[in-house]
Each structure stands twice: as structure tokens, then as C-alpha cells.
Design a protein around this nucleic acid. Structure first.
Lengths: 153, 153, 153, 153
DNA sequence: GTGGTCTAGACCACA
DNA sequence: GTGGTCTAGACCACA
């Protein structure tokens, strides 16, 4: 498998230097636009991309990642549908102002589905629920540490 | 969304009656063979399908689920690769004897990836890490209860 | 303004002859895929396309309407998001089984918005609310007559 | 979705205080100038802006709404074309003296189109023609009440 | 300069 | 055969 790590430096609205770091694998069976959607959602969730921040333009990202602008556009549109980004006509695309909780119960259901998949996968890898629990605690701890670091910047 | 629940009754080697209960949604964007792989892995992990148990033949499953036999075959092959099923020439396909731990560290890495995805998704749904942790505990508890029930049968 | 009326004859699942009749204006400022979405929603609402019915394939429609397949595909995908069509992997695209009412109140709100727009527009055209009411009654009457006719077929 | 409500106080020719209340959403897919056209048409139809009344200048509106003056200008031009506003050289822009009925039949056709769109949309939302009719009656009633209130001022 | 749309043509996974 | 994805290149409305 070929992983292509792409570093994209650009200035945000406060003229600070930001390094976006997207792993896109054009040889993957996962469509490029889906990979990009996942990468951006991760960057936002980690606090690397803060709410209100301006995203690189479609053309910038396209040339930076050597990907067709249409593909970038598709990813941005998908992210807008999911409420992660907001596009303002001829001004650019921005990170949305945090998640809007519409239907907490339905959403908890989705997460529960994902956790069940983790348990199934773990079973087949010979990993016990207790190990999962410990791993989850460690992962959340790291997650919180990273987020508070990014917010502190 | 259309969900098609399929009940598949058949006799295993011990002549016990088993009800397999697969949710296959032909309208989903997830390929049918992947759905089947997931369903079978779940059934095994939950203890509904016990190690050593005989699986229905490709033809049985195909007619039972009204799915192209080639699709079933593809799922079985994938499950063999993953070590979940074992095919014995001219005797049939069986549930493998428990997970074979090859490389614990690499496998923990996979699970960690999945947990990170859960955290990203949860963030965008407005769910906090603490809520995730609680949900995980509850899910594991239910999981263990169900497994011990199935093993008791 | 140039209007291009396209008649598309094809056989549906019951081998009956169906005439699809889409008005697509490539010179309009309304994107082609949006026009197609509107036309198909209208056909379904009028009962010309019945639930469960198979839609023409992307390629058929594309060649029939002299439109790029990608544009047709975009329209189909949008219609799937709206719950009007259902796509089944490598089988084709079908008319969904009727509207699923999720949030009646929110939906009534949308319709109310549209009715207010009608009243605003009517005001500027010198048409009174009473005339609107009469026109609405007449329009609904015709609508019901046409639907019962299509259902009777 | 972000809605930006803008209150714009200004003195009209009679030196009365008027509050204009435009909802402009720069993140909407509807062009800003179209949103402004709709808002002004609505204000006039509701009687908030009376015939003969002086409109704010392009610059006033532009600074009040934090919108590019060119965009405001485009909206005013469009409204002049539609006969809603009248510009008098070096005196300013005014609300026109009521709708001029040019071709009643053609105009009823436009309204009929809009009503059909409402019916199509309602169908896909699971709303019946009867519910539409009732909603229309209620909407017109409120409309009339509001208009008579504004006229009474 | 911004994102949005469209085409022609190619390739791919799935069933 | 089915829909899905991607590219290169072009054009457009909007602000």
C-alpha cells in the first residue's frame, strides 16, 4: 500500500502559520473524496482546524494535493451537508461553529453501532473487552491532551 | 431505508435447530458481500455461531437470502482469509476454532484506529468522551451478558 | 428561452409501455441536474412513476436526453438523498416506496414558507388572496383527478 | 445554518421611525441579492413598506447589512425591473404605487406553477392536498390580519 | 477570486 | 450491465 503524506502550509485569517496534514492514498479502494472528508473531520475534531477558520480554497487544496478540483469540491460539499463546513458564496469555505445536536438519541445509536463493530473486530483479533476498555481510556486521555494543546495555541 | 431481515433455519452437526438472523440491505451503499461478512463475524463473536459449527452451504444461503451465489462465495472467501471460517474440502465450511493471535501489537493498532474514528464521529455529533466511555461500559456489559447466555445454551 | 421537450419511451418491470416526459432546458440558469430532480419528483408525485418501478439506467437517460451520464448520476444521487429513489448496487435505480414522514411539523413549516412566497408573488402581480384560494382549489381538483387516472392504469 | 437578522432603523419621508427587518444568510446557496429581493418584496406585500415610501440608499443598506454595495445595487435593479421599486434620478428610490396588472392570465399561470410545486413538494413530505388547503386558508387569514394591522398604522 | 456546473472519456467494483 | 469515481479542461454566476 502506498501512503502519500501531504503537508500543506497556509496562512489562516489571523495570519498564523498552519500545517495541514492529510494522508490521501489514491490507490485505496476508499474514494479519494471520502478519505478527504475523513481527514478534515479528524482535523476539526482534534482542534487542528478551529471553528470559524477559513479552509484552503478548492484550487489551493487541489494543486497542493495534486487532485482534481472537482474531487475536492465534492468533499467540501459533503462536509457542508454534514454540518462540518460552511460555504459562503464567493467568499470561501469555513469551519462551522461546532456541532449542532439535533437528535441526541439517534446519534447515540450510531455511536453504539460503531462500538459494537469494535467489539466484534476485537473478538476476532483475540482482544478481550477489558483490554478494549483500557485502550479506550488511554485513547481518550491522549485525545483530551491533544485537544487542550490545540486550543491553547 | 429498507431493511430486509432474513431468518434462516437449519440443522447443524448436532442436529440442533439454529436460527440465523442476518440483516441484509440490498439498497445500502455497503456491498452485499461486506454486509454478509459483518453479519457472520458478529454472529460468531456473539456466540450465536460456535467454533466448529457447520455453516450453511453457499447454495443454501444464496437461496435463503435470495442473493447471487457468487456474492455468498465472495463473503465466505473473505471470511476464510480473515480466519473466521475454515473450508474443508468436500466436507463443507466451518466456524474456525477461535481467533489466532498473530501479532497482538499490530492488532491493537487496528482497534485503536477504530476507536479514534468513533471519537471523531462522536465529536461531530456533539457527544463527549465521557459519554462515550459510559456508553462503552454499558455496551460491554450487555455484550458479556449475551455471550454467557449463548454459551449456556 | 429555448425549451427542449424530451420523450423517453421504455418498458418498465411489467413490460408496459411508459412515456417519460422531461422538460430540460440546458440554457436555463437552473442547473440541469436540479431540473431533472424537479421533473422526476413531479412525475412521481403525479403517479406517472409508481413506487417500486425501475428507473431508466443512467446511461439510457443520458443518451435519451443527450446529457452527460455524470449529470444524470448527480440527479439520481440527490433524489436518493431525498428519499425519492433507491439505488440497488448493480441492479439499477428504483422509485422508493412512498414518502416516509419523519418530522411532520418541520415539514409543514417548509410548505408554509412556500405558500407565503406564493402570496408575496401574487400580491406583486395584482392577484388577491381570494383568487389564490380559488386557484388552489381548482389546481388540487385537477391534481386529484390526474392521480386517480394514473393509479387506475 | 446561520441566520443573520438585521435591524435597520431609518426615517422615511414623513419622518416616522421605521424598522426594516431583513434576514440575510450569507451561507445560503441562494445568492445574497436574490435573498434581498425576496425580503423587500415580502416587506412591501405585507404592508411594512408602503407605496410611495422612500427606500434606504444603496450605501445605507450596504453598510447596515455589511454587504457589498454592488450586491445591493443588483437587488434594487432587479426590483425596478419587476416594478416593485421606482428610482427617481437624484431623488432616490421609492416603493412603487401598487402592482400594475399587465397580463392577468399569464400571471395566473405563474402562480399556478408555484402551487403545483407546492403540491409536488408536499407529496414527497407525506402531506395531503387537504392539509395543504387547510394550511393555505390559515396562512391567508394570518396574512390578511397582518396587512390590515400594518395599514392601520 | 470564489465555488458550481458540465462534458468527454476512462476505469473500477459489484452482482 | 449496473452505478460510482476521477481527470482535464472549459465556462459561469456571484461578490
Amino acid at each position: 500500500m502506498v501512503f502519500i503524506a501531504i503537508y500543506l502550509y497556509y496562512y489562516n485569517q489571523y495570519k498564523e502559520d498552519i500545517t495541514l496534514w492529510f494522508n490521501i492514498n489514491p490507490a485505496s479502494s476508499v474514494p479519494i473524496y471520502v478519505q478527504l472528508v475523513d481527514e478534515i473531520k479528524t482535523a476539526v475534531a482534534r482542534g487542528v482546524l478551529a471553528p470559524g477558520e477559513r479552509m484552503p480554497t478548492v484550487r489551493e487544496l487541489a494543486s497542493g494535493l495534486s487532485i482534481n478540483p472537482l474531487t475536492i469540491s465534492k468533499a467540501y460539499q459533503r462536509l457542508e451537508q454534514e454540518g462540518v463546513l460552511v460555504t459562503m458564496r464567493s467568499r470561501g469555505t469555513f469551519v462551522a461553529e461546532g456541532p449542532s445536536v439535533l437528535n441526541k438519541e439517534a446519534e447515540m445509536g450510531k455511536i453504539r453501532e460503531m462500538l459494537l463493530k469494535v467489539l466484534v473486530e476485537a473478538y476476532h483479533l483475540g482482544i478481550t473487552p477489558d483490554e478494549i476498555k483500557a485502550l479506550m481510556d488511554k485513547t481518550i486521555e491522549e485525545w483530551n491532551r491533544e485537544r487542550s494543546q490545540n486550543e491553547g495555541e
